[in-house]
Design a protein around this nucleic acid. Structure first.
Lengths: 335, 335
DNA sequence: GTGAAAGCGCTAACAT
DNA sequence: ATGTTAGCGCTTTCAC
């Protein structure tokens, strides 16, 4: 029931705690005999070293913290999954925090993690964050910090990002090559680098094919609520858009519904493309073409980078930036 | 950069560590003067109490562990979200583990959490788990344990479950009342209580309306892969099923696709109902009727129960079992 | 009102 | 080959 300690073993076996400590970790200077004795006793009495004590000695625990905006998203849950797997393989524990897209909670999450004295933090920034002191504090405390996906522009540190530009470019290029000429972009505020990069990929693809870049086709529409008003507006334009490139799969899924109920055929009349390649893409009708962000890989990569930093194995000085390549997964919502 | 300690403050102010300690926590026996002095110095030098040291003293950390089969599921991510929120409100940290539906990893997750000396563990069992010694070890170590959703039948402890029986019963009753007579059940192995309870709810609803309970309509089909073979088989039966009650939304979503591509109209000819009420239900065509499991609420409830246990606030002796009620959310895939 | 000392469980330098 | 000691940072008796 109650955990036994080194001291207890020492007392029981008439040894000193240090001998027991050494015996437990196969220290060479310990006789076979006592070693066996100690280890047998430890096993029998289910001795577990008290990590708390060791953590106090070394002043570091083998724990890394994660801050995501909202775990209830396919992308972030795949990233967390990757982080957890990689961390577990390296013997690190994962402390989980959620900002709920709320700046205040993000700040509190950082405090929580610093209080817990984690060795490193991986974070994806909340949409409402415009100050970065809390992130700077992480670095100031000598704790390693890696941003993933929604990186913080206000602070220069290691990061892992999706190749949003190329992902968008390839998706839009695909739609152009399959005959689309009036491609609308349903994006997010340009203050988010991921949104900005996708917009640039979108625009550059248009330019490459000498198509006009039109403001009227470029809208902020990153939530289901916005989709309900923005998409119908776009469908009233003349000339009519013949494609929607959406910043995420949720918007794309609703886009499909709205376009269909407006009486247009997908993909014959209007193509729709999403971003993430989540479960949703399989169940819409038609199935949704989308840009795979490889969230799991991003999680692994970010954790790998952070752990290497922690353990001093990342030789590269200065900021490391890793790019996760995307893949356009063509399904049935594009021609 | 480097964290300052109580001792440092004591030295700098020519006080003893104990005085500083008292001053920091407004101990009555400390003069206003020194208190102010100490607190000002602490603030200025960004003193943070070392949680590790306090944890060692008290031999408990304010951390609870969570083990989920796979976080990349709408339901489990909502539960985690609820757990995290509730834990955060009570000042607990959340250590996150994933079993990946793998018994071995589940065992390792338990070890990890016990090693980390968490105050309590919340777990949802992996599908491949048939032994329970690792769970028993949690209890044997005096660590509180709460199961949620996929409870462990082999061990009698606190749990929070969805009212699967009522959820299934109501869903099937709704289909019957809207005219379905040949309702197929796409379930999972009866060794999972959640699957078994849903099957019983299904059968009892049939019985209530004097409909036959037929083995041919009762299949194990809880993955997309199985759906691809099982559903077409069912569609070849005579008489044809006129409804599918599915154990989860993924299967239900694919069911919609398969049924539609077999040429049947939903819901006119065949009704489909899912379980969870995830995002998927909004994007299928037609939108999917489903049983809402209230994952977030389950997470909150489970965390609440665990924390009450930890803090000795749960007065009830013996095992506590909480039931999360379900809600049938009728959309367009049922009549 | 403040300080000295002990101790949480462990390890490592320094004995012997 | 084993024991002694000190210390990680903090709190808490027990003194004064």
């Amino acid at each position: 029931m109650v955990q036994i300690t080194l001291k207890d073993i020492a007392k029981a076996l008439n040894l000193s705690p240090s001998t027991v400590s050494r015996a437990m970790k196969d220290h060479p200077a310990i006789s076979q005999e006592t070693r066996k004795l100690v280890q047998a006793y430890a096993l029998e009495h289910k001795y577990k070293p008290n990590t708390l004590a060791m953590q106090l000695r070394t002043n570091r625990n083998n724990t890394i913290g994660v801050i995501v905006p909202e775990i209830v998203h396919y992308f972030f849950s795949t990233v967390l999954s990757g982080i957890q797997m990689e961390a577990e393989n390296d013997g690190y524990n994962v402390l989980f925090c959620q900002s709920n897209e709320d700046y205040e909670r993000e700040v509190r999450s950082v405090e929580t993690l610093l209080d817990a004295r984690v060795c490193g933090i991986m974070a994806s920034q909340s949409k409402t964050t415009t100050q970065f002191d809390h992130f700077r504090e992480i670095v100031d405390n000598g704790v390693h910090l890696v941003f993933f996906d929604r990186i913080c522009t206000g602070i220069n540190t290691d990061k892992v990002v999706v190749d949003d530009y190329a992902g968008a470019f390839n998706a839009v290029e695909h739609m152009i090559r399959t005959g689309c000429k009036q491609i609308a972009f349903l994006g997010a505020t340009s203050s988010l680098p991921i949104a900005n990069n996708r917009r640039m990929g979108y625009e550059d693809a248009l330019r490459k094919y000498k198509l006009p870049v039109e403001n009227r086709l470029n809208r902020i529409c990153d939530t289901v609520e916005l989709a309900r008003t923005v998409i119908p507006e776009l469908l009233r334009l003349q000339p009519l858009p013949d494609a929607f490139f959406c910043i995420n799969d949720e918007v794309a899924s609703f886009c499909i519904q709205i376009v269909k109920s407006a009486g247009y055929r997908i993909p014959d009349e209007i193509s729709v493309c999403g971003f993430t390649n989540s479960y949703l893409t399989e169940v819409t009708d038609p199935t949704l073409t989308s840009v795979d962000q490889h969230g799991f890989e991003m999680g692994c990569t970010a954790a790998r980078l952070l752990i290497n930093r922690i353990e001093g194995k990342e030789t590269k000085q200065g900021v490391v930036s890793r790019l996760i390549k995307t893949d356009l997964v063509v399904k049935s919502s594009t021609r």
